[in-house]
């Protein structure tokens, strides 16, 4: 599946096997339908999974992620519209995991799983 994504300004390879096996991991970069506009696709990093407690960035608050939902954030926090604005999203909105950037040449490579530190506490 090839998707041209303005968010990354690059062509990425998105794998869908994570949907088949229904396995998501912290730090995955995921492709999902925008919760307020189902015709739009977003790319964000998966931060927290159902049942987990996490600290909201920039506040002392912690919240619990509801069943069937997850928390997504953009890596460029200053200009990203993500779960910090619209809250947890249903996992059912996820369309795939971004595995590689394949264009432009300067950006070719695997998209790594990466987690911000100290923000999640599992059940």
């Amino acid at each position: 599946l090839l998707e041209r994504l303005l968010e990354l300004g690059a062509v990425v390879l998105a794998e869908r096997s994570c949907l088949q096996k229904y396995q998501f991991s912290h730090g995955d970069v995921v492709l999902f339908k925008c919760p307020s506009d189902h015709r739009e696709l977003f790319v964000k990093r998966l931060i927290a999974l159902p049942g987990e407690w996490m600290q909201l960035p920039g506040t002392p608050d912690i919240i619990k992620i509801p069943e069937g939902h997850c928390w997504v954030e953009g890596d460029n926090a200053a200009c990203s519209w993500d779960s910090r604005s619209f809250g947890p999203i249903p996992l059912g909105l996820i369309k795939g995991r971004v595995a590689h950037v394949i264009w432009p040449p300067s950006k070719i490579g695997r998209v790594d799983t990466k987690m911000p530190e100290n923000r999640i506490s599992p059940l």
Binding site: Y22, E67, G68, H69, P90, G92
Partner: peptide, 21 residues
Amino acid sequence: DARYGLSRGDVVVFRSPTEHR
């Protein structure tokens, strides 16, 4: 698809909001 769209009263199939499988 955008051309068609869903209407009120339709019977729809969707992913569960609490169990994505």
